[in-house]
Computed example of a mutant assay.
Amino acid sequence: MRKAAGNRGTARGARAARLGDTAIAAVTLVALGSGVWLLGGGTGPHAPPQPSAAEGRPDPGGTRAGAPGLAPSPPLRIRIPAIRVNAPLVGLALTRSGSLDAPPAKEKNLAGWYEAGTTPGETGTAIVAGHVDNTEGPAVFYDLGALKRGARIEVDRRDGSVAVFTVDAVEVYSAHDFPDEKVYGAARRPELRVITCGGGYSRATGYQGNVVVFAHLTGSR
């Protein structure tokens, strides 16, 4: 995992993994949290919640039955009722350095999806990323680490359908032990990963890792 300079948050991507049908080498999610606002009050009650071991993935092989995959259609909005997320989605591309770009940090209620990969609801692994905070305070995925297994995630799609996912696990990984294939590897069913910074905060290096939500498609409407 590449670390961002100063107090910027960091996230790791896939090393020689595949996102949908697109091969990507050494992808890194960058700048998903500044942490600067934490410095005023320490990391006590202001730090974003982190998942407990009890929310770890019970189905690492993705064998649970789910809904059939939908036709490809770009996502427009993501909703996670349990943590009060209701945010528009913007397409994210790769930077020249091979990093997955981040949504504009100044727009706190905005998430992004990797638009060269799988669309949410389509068979494969779709990727959504968003900031945990910015210099002003909590951002769209600040409470992602508080999500529980079984929670619902809904994605509005351009074709008018809504892809409904059920959370399988919520895990936190350090920057030096990020499971690329587990997070970004191809899937035989429609799956979703929602990613933000997490794993504690250091004044020297910023956020220490990433919170990752694993979910699979269980319905649509």
Results as ranks from 00 to 15, higher is better:
Lys108Gly: 11
Pro190Gly: 05
Thr119Val: 05
Ala151Gln: 04
Arg64Glu: 02
Pro49Asp: 06
Leu76Val: 02
Ala17Cys: 14
Asp159Ser: 09
Gly9Glu: 02
Ala175Arg: 13
Gly61Tyr: 00
Arg193Trp: 04
Gly124Glu: 08
Pro60Tyr: 10
Gly66Met: 01
Glu154Ser: 10
Ala204Tyr: 06
Leu92Tyr: 09
Leu29Gln: 12
Asp180Trp: 04
Ala26Asp: 15
Arg193Asp: 02
Gly33Glu: 04
Ala54Val: 03
Ala151Asp: 08
Leu19Gly: 04
Asn109Trp: 09
Ala187Gly: 08
Gly160Val: 04
Ser99Thr: 02
Leu89Trp: 07
Pro88Lys: 09
Ala25Ser: 15
Val213Gln: 03
Ser99Leu: 02
Ile153Ala: 09
Ala23Ser: 11
Gly121Pro: 11
Thr10His: 14
Ala53Lys: 13
Ala17Gln: 10
Ala5Leu: 11
Thr10Lys: 12
Ala31Phe: 11
Val132Glu: 02
Tyr207Trp: 15
Gly66Ser: 01
Arg96Ile: 01
Pro45Val: 10
Asn7Phe: 10
Ala111Cys: 14
Leu89Glu: 01
Gly91Cys: 04
Thr123Phe: 07
Ala175Ile: 00
Thr43Ser: 15
Leu32Phe: 08
Ser99Met: 08
Pro75Thr: 04
Leu39Phe: 00
Leu38Pro: 14
Ala116Ile: 01
Gly160Trp: 02
Gly66Asn: 05
Ser52Asp: 10
Lys148Cys: 00
Ser97Ile: 02
Lys3Cys: 10
Thr10Gly: 14
Ala93Pro: 10
Arg84His: 14
Val128Tyr: 08
Arg152Asp: 09
Thr123Pro: 12
Pro138Ile: 02
Arg157Thr: 07
Arg79Tyr: 06
Gly9Arg: 00
Gly9Trp: 03
Ala93Ser: 15
Asn134Asp: 15
Ala11Gln: 05
Gly56Val: 00
Gly41Leu: 01
Val213Ala: 04
Asn210Lys: 06
Gln50Gly: 11
Ala163Phe: 10
Asp133Val: 02
Gly9Tyr: 05
Met1Trp: 14
Gly124Val: 01
Leu110Trp: 06
Asp177Lys: 06
Gly160Lys: 03
Glu171Asp: 09
Phe178Met: 06
Arg188Gln: 12
Gly185Lys: 05
Leu110Lys: 11
Glu55Lys: 07
Pro120Arg: 08
Ala31His: 15
Val132Gln: 07
Gly41Cys: 03
Ala169Thr: 10
Pro103Trp: 07
Leu94Gln: 08
Gly41Gln: 08
Ser97Asn: 11
Val27Cys: 10
Leu217Thr: 06
Ala169Arg: 12
Ala47Ser: 15
Thr119Gln: 10
Ala71Ile: 01
Ala146Pro: 13
Asp156Tyr: 01
Ala16Tyr: 06
Gly124Met: 03
Thr218Ala: 09
Gly117Asn: 05
Gly62Tyr: 07
Phe165Ser: 04
Ala54Gln: 10
Leu70Pro: 10
Ser99Gly: 11
Gly40Ser: 15
Gly199Arg: 00
Arg57Val: 05
Gln50Val: 01
Ala67Phe: 12
Tyr142Pro: 00
Ala175Glu: 00
Gly20Ala: 05
Ser99Gln: 11
Pro49Met: 07
Thr63Gln: 13
